[in-house]
């Protein structure tokens, strides 16, 4: 059978390479019984639509940020809340907590989908950065900084809490917006700064570790359940190995990305994250007090941070 897989990534990107690897491994491990045909670059439509098609079984696999499951269970939006975790480990523990796993199961039910393997197995990028016109080295530099965000209340409110002046812009307008000064900064995984050429117009890059991102492989539930146990196992194995492949790819390349960007004229700026995280703690306390956060959220975060 042929599985159709939709992704936002281009085939040349790291994400695209990992997805191709997955497709290749699935074919190998299932002895060619399952062929995965990849549609890169959002060719089959915007995420919302693609997810609908996945639920209906028109396509069989979608790879996307775990946070996108928030369309089924709102609480999942908060798994990409900015400045909550210091590293991927902490976040990974949080994601594998009973609380989050419960949300994920709920989402699987609601979307008629199954999440392959461990939700944090495949990192989507090494870390997040902010690219800006003028260096961002301290919390004060966020003050009044016109930062691009997408239309998401949590992101907008969080960045406003940091003192930034948020502008909503579609991704394709970011370069031009920076060029013309409509915005002064954009947040992004480090891997996208080079291909999007943001360094040409925002040459100062500060590492923010804003939030860890993982790539989830979502499979249509009926498709998955229709497979024999051996086949299911083969697909899971392909996913696990593709995840390792992605990790290695990111590890091997992150330094080279930094060097390339520097040789293209970008400057890496040291940003003191301590005060940023501290300021954001206040934000989450306020949200919690207002009853906006999911039940048990801050406790699960604290548990994952201190373990």
């Amino acid at each position: 059978e042929t599985w159709r897989m939709s992704t936002q990534a281009s085939s040349e990107s790291f994400e695209g390479q990992a997805i191709d690897k997955f497709a290749e491994l699935v074919e190998t491990y299932t002895d060619g019984e399952i062929e995965v045909r990849v549609y890169p670059n959002e060719q089959l439509g915007k995420l919302d639509t693609v997810m609908d098609q996945l639920g209906q079984g028109v396509i069989q696999v979608v790879s996307t940020s775990v946070a996108l499951l928030g369309r089924y269970v709102e609480a999942i939006d908060y798994t990409s809340a900015p400045f909550l975790f210091e590293d991927y480990e902490q976040w990974s523990r949080f994601m594998n907590s009973e609380l989050v796993q419960g949300w994920v199961s709920e989402a699987e039910e609601a979307g008629n989908i199954e999440v392959l393997g461990d939700v944090t197995a495949m990192p989507r990028g090494s870390y997040r950065v902010i690219a800006s016109e003028t260096p961002v080295a301290s919390l004060e530099d966020f003050d009044g900084l016109r930062v691009r965000q997408w239309s998401n209340d949590l992101m907008v409110n969080a960045w406003e809490h940091l003192g930034a002046e948020v502008r909503i812009l579609s991704w394709s307008e970011v370069y031009d917006g920076l060029n013309r000064g409509l915005i002064q900064a954009v947040t992004s995984p480090i891997e996208l700064i080079e291909p999007q050429k943001f360094y040409e117009v925002a040459p100062n890059i500060s590492r923010t570790n804003e939030y860890p991102q993982a790539l989830a492989f979502l499979v249509n539930k009926d498709t998955m359940e229709g497979l024999s146990p051996e086949m299911q196992e083969a697909v899971e194995r392909a996913h696990a190995e593709a995840s390792t492949f992605m990790e290695d790819l990111l590890d091997a390349n992150v330094e080279e990305i930094v060097t390339t960007l520097e040789s293209e004229g970008a400057t890496f700026v040291d940003l003191d994250l301590g005060p940023v995280v501290e300021r954001m703690d206040g934000f989450y306390q306020e949200l919690d007090a207002a009853g906006e956060l999911p039940d048990g959220f801050l406790d699960a975060v604290a548990a994952a941070r201190t373990e």
């Binding site: 609908d52 639920g55 209906q56 369309r71 709102e74 239309s151 998401n152 209340d153 909503i168």
Partner: peptide, 14 residues
């Protein structure tokens, strides 16, 4: 029935 999730920043269902 399949698009009952709320749109970002809008609050009404898709």
């Amino acid at each position: 029935s399949s698009q009952s999730d709320a749109m970002d920043m809008i609050g009404i269902p898709r």
